[in-house]
């Protein structure tokens, strides 16, 4: 039998991990059961779900990108004040004065773009595989909400550097709200906190970007994963793509 780490075998280790053996299937299931991080996963999945062809791993890729965005985003928050007077300068000094500042900002920017692509591609792959079919309809709807949240997160983040690209892209983007019947003006002016993009807008987008939307996204993601976990044992009888007639 393989030796477990001494820490896991110790009193404290046992109190944390509960189940320390990892040899038999039963051990692994028990370890799974006792682990907070692993409880996101089901204990068993259908074998077809392991392969690249099943999902192209796009869901995992999206989740990994989301986590990397949270990490790099928190780092960026230490060097950024959301006001028109300082935002642009903060980004500039991030590039020049902060160790790895430019790199972290690059990471945040490119991971955000990649995440939009990954989430959209995930939706497309799920569609083509027919994985939204009963009884999994509702998880598809939750996924659509996550796609929207991803777009909103990316869009609110777009304003924060307060450069020409940001200012006018957000001006144009929010002007579309004007054409919503009846409430158009009110919606746009509430989004902007004024008649045009200004300091109030920057603050609002910042709060949405770093607090409101990420919390919402994580909450909805938990529902998404929980539903996936519950459905992992489903045996789709007429799944013609994977079962020979």
């Amino acid at each position: 039998m393989r030796r477990q780490s001494p820490f896991r075998e110790s009193t404290i280790g046992r109190s944390i991990f509960r189940s320390t053996e990892r040899e038999t299937t039963r051990d692994r299931a028990a370890g799974h059961w006792a682990s907070f991080l692993l409880h996101v996963y089901p204990v068993k999945v259908r074998r077809r779900e392991l392969g690249f062809r099943y999902s192209w791993y796009l869901g995992v890729i999206s989740a990994v990108l989301l986590i990397s965005l949270v990490v790099s985003g928190v780092y960026l928050m230490f060097f950024y004040v959301p006001s028109p007077a300082s935002a642009y300068g903060d980004i500039q000094s991030l590039h020049t004065d902060v160790a790895f500042g430019q790199f972290i900002r690059n990471t945040h920017r490119w991971a955000a773009h990649l995440m939009v692509i990954a989430v959209a591609a995930h939706a497309a792959r799920v569609f083509y595989r027919g994985a939204y079919k009963p009884p999994r309809e509702f998880n598809w709807v939750v996924g659509v909400v996550l796609l929207l949240l991803t777009l909103l997160l990316s869009f609110t983040g777009y304003l924060l550097p307060w450069d020409q690209l940001a200012y006018w892209a957000v001006t144009v983007g929010t002007s579309m709200a004007d054409f919503v019947p009846i409430f158009g003006d009110v919606i746009r002016e509430t989004l902007l906190g004024g008649t045009q993009v200004g300091s109030e807008t920057l603050l609002r987008f910042y709060v949405l970007h770093v607090a409101v939307l990420p919390l919402l996204a994580f909450g909805v993601l938990m529902i998404h994963l929980w539903r996936w976990r519950k459905d992992s044992m489903l045996d789709i009888a007429n799944d013609e793509e994977f079962v020979d007639e």
């Binding site: 002016e189 008649t195 045009q196 109030e200």
Partner: peptide, 11 residues
């Protein structure tokens, strides 16, 4: 609380 205030920006 959140609706736009007229004095912000132009006005």
């Amino acid at each position: 609380v959140l609706r736009s205030r007229a004095e912000a920006g132009l006005g």
